[in-house]
Design a protein around this nucleic acid. Sequence first.
DNA 1: AGTCCGTGCTCAAACGATTGACCAGATCCG
DNA 2: CGGATCTGGTCAATCGTTTGAGCACGGACT
Lengths: 339, 339
Amino acid sequence: MATLGDVAARAGVSISAVSRVLSDAPDSRVSAATRQRIVDAARELQYRPNFAGRALKSARTQVVGLVVPDITNALFTELMHGAEDEATERGYTVLLGRSDDVRPGGEVIARLIGEGRVDGMALQVGDAVLPAGLRDLLTTQAPIVLVNSSSPDHVGSVTLDDHRGALIATQHLLELGHERIAFANGLPRSFTAKRRRTGYKLALETAGVRVPKEYETRVGYTVDNGRTALHRLMALDPRPTGIVVANVNAAVGLLGEARRAGIRVPDDLSVVTVHDSWTAENTWPPLTAVKMQFYTVGRTAVRSVIRRIETGETSDEVVTDPPPELVVRESTAAPRRTS
Amino acid sequence: MATLGDVAARAGVSISAVSRVLSDAPDSRVSAATRQRIVDAARELQYRPNFAGRALKSARTQVVGLVVPDITNALFTELMHGAEDEATERGYTVLLGRSDDVRPGGEVIARLIGEGRVDGMALQVGDAVLPAGLRDLLTTQAPIVLVNSSSPDHVGSVTLDDHRGALIATQHLLELGHERIAFANGLPRSFTAKRRRTGYKLALETAGVRVPKEYETRVGYTVDNGRTALHRLMALDPRPTGIVVANVNAAVGLLGEARRAGIRVPDDLSVVTVHDSWTAENTWPPLTAVKMQFYTVGRTAVRSVIRRIETGETSDEVVTDPPPELVVRESTAAPRRTS
DNA sequence: AGTCCGTGCTCAAACGATTGACCAGATCCG
DNA sequence: CGGATCTGGTCAATCGTTTGAGCACGGACT
């Protein structure tokens, strides 16, 4: 690959002149003719600035890391798109990482930051409290922004309006006439589960509806967790006529298991989920869902990381601007009047 | 972050000594006592080698790029896992990239290689011929290995045994007693589509079964493509009793559309797909699928890239070792004896 | 005529890690 | 006892880029 030196030789000028011209330095002080020669030479040699050289000198990589629990989870598609769009606009690149079960998670992040591979990170931890090692990282000055979670000792986070999402889902069932509304939630420690819970509770309370304590399960967000939740809820007496599922993957599992158990959706049971994704469109029946604004979260998170990198400012933001949006499909209907 | 110089100062030795000890140079020639002081100092300062410094000097990043059409496609989960496992074992890191429709694709790759961000790449292009710009790249000496496709002027590729996968799927329907077996394939130009086609044809031929030419559609691999394929095939007379779908995403769409059209699966129609993924387990009915060995492809691709980087050797490999594996679920059954 | 300034460049010192060349002192061998 | 060899290190150049400092020259001003 061509270096600055190669371009300089071809244009008959010094390396500094080339560097200043090609990096658009404001006070390059180069004549139009020389500038043209440099630009031509660079094009002819297909010059591209060497990443390592630049990063070494400037102590900046113009890369932000984005770590999510599972890259292939359909939920994160939009988040990644948002992150990439924002990064591109600001001259940064996104480096994707997984924080899945193989490695402790903290190690990946420590390496990326410690070795200077990224300037900052947007980090969505899995459905659990922060691992101890991670905690250390966050308390340092490293430019890390948490996504969909927060930590007492850490400022810098971007979250969805989970409360509102669960509220809207629950209200949808209430408006259809349901009263025995259950809630298949995530693990008790999960940040998002806590916030979704308040939305569910508030909706019921506002409507003056009371349900047994057992109507809330707290199993988790995976497909299998959804299956488990269905069994628990359908073993109750009286059975719920509607279920709000806190996560679309769990909803997919729950729906499949209902089918297997001979429970007809939406005739016997209405199901609405928080989160939308292409998988929700392709279940049978297609899932009614509350679309959460992951795209905006991705953009906001990257913007926040970059602000942190460049100015040092931190902030905690909740994405409320496009509000969560109810997408009615075919998994919800009015309850049968059998009682 | 601590540098080699910091560690050297703390241990009271020269930078060279530290470098040699920490990078396990074979002839470090350092006394045990000094070595210990260096190791201790490095640990105390939490030393991590700076990525840019190392890359600049050695002209190696120890990073391989993995570019797939859509990172969040469930199909690529295993491929990425395989790639990461292989890379980790060999001291490399994987950098994930998307080659989706937003950017031409070639530009991303040219940047990654040209700027020296990666030492080599494993590249799965989308369901089309190689864009012109890409072609240029491949003919250079850049260490690029194609995944699930190949190019006449390029040596270096790793592919699935698509032929065998389609063969197994078709044979499954034949063994159930189907004869009117259709094939919902990918676009005509697609490399994988061509190979899957030969498997389908061979199975029918071997069994002495003949079907109308219209029984093969060549719409594509997306969910919507699957819907389209169903309509085309069900408009034929006589209708097929079984469909081999060349891609699991298309199969999900096809299945959903069948449901919507009132076609009962597997009673009226059997559906089997090439590729397995968690989405295939969660359709209704769960999809019978031929599991392709994406994990091994990922490993093999990265191994091939690294070999290319380190020794310059190229190769074209087909992953046959764990052969494609039939996973029987509930979308296939014997045809009804109505004819 | 001497001073000052603006223009259009070049020089050289970093950034952090690697690595071939070198060197001082101790040991060994004939 | 003198030279060779080994041990345990250090020195300094280098990778490609950025950037503050400096320099030569021409013109304007006093």
